[in-house]
Nucleic acid binder design. Structure first.
Lengths: 128, 128
DNA sequence: CCTACTGTACTAGAACGATGGTACGGTAGA
DNA sequence: TCTACCGTACCATCGTTCTAGTACAGTAGG
């Protein structure tokens, strides 16, 4: 499956699902019109409660990323790609700002942050 | 005051206090032996409940950053500087890793992340 | 000694996230 | 038609965080 849930990273589980589904649509992993995993199936795969998945899907419908095919499942809606590309940029940018602000408030100057960032980016590359 | 609380950034309020006190000690804003603001005073300044501040201070005592002077207040403990310097590095590094991982998982490659990072770092500099 | 502060401890409740379970109507396929 | 799946809507329960209020022992200063 294309989702990774981290129970203790601060974000609510349903929110992690919402974000990652959006990222998958933005990235093209989930195509417009495609069926997403059913509530029960995704819950089984992630070993979480179906209600939590339903909660995430409800949010994604509110955001017009998914739409319901009654009795069949949920599909990626027509306008989803555009919405998700914008959302991805906005979400990542917000996270980055948070971290930078915290680092700066913690007494690190731009150079130190820069150095730390490069180190982490390199170790991220190595993993792939 | 030297603390900024953001109610909706995912982190618990007490945890934000813990982190920022540690950062202040690491940065030297709070010196070893110095009294930290009292539970009631800090609560008043941040307009939060005194119990929430007490919760944070309890955590900081467990982490051996603060120690109690009964009836007088809490002071920054002798070994606090070293502990906080290490903690700051560890905490910021962890946050950075989270964001980078999320960005990468969201389909952005190293270059795109790099660009986004530089933009945000510049806008951070401008604010100071 | 008295007063005003300190930390600390306790109870109670609200809000939220997550779990577990049950139930119902719609749809697809054998 | 029957069966198995689908989303959806409930319900009760639990843990965490935060708020609110009260109480008590220790300490400093007038």
């Amino acid at each position: 499956m294309f989702l990774h849930i981290d129970a203790n990273n601060g974000l609510a589980v349903y929110d992690q699902i919402v974000r990652q589904i959006k990222f998958s649509v933005a990235d093209g992993v989930l195509a417009v019109g495609e069926l997403v995993p059913s509530v029960r199936e995704l819950a089984r795969e992630l070993t979480i409660n179906p209600n939590t998945v339903a909660r995430a899907y409800r949010q994604l419908q509110d955001d017009e990323v998914l739409e319901s095919m009654r009795g069949t499942g949920l599909i990626v809606s027509i306008g989803a790609r555009k919405i998700c590309l914008a959302a991805r940029k906005r979400l990542i940018r917000a996270r980055l700002q948070e971290v930078l602000l915290e680092a700066h408030h913690g007494g690190l100057d731009a150079e130190q942050i820069q150095t730390l960032f490069q180190t982490e980016l390199k170790s991220l590359k190595k993993k792939r």
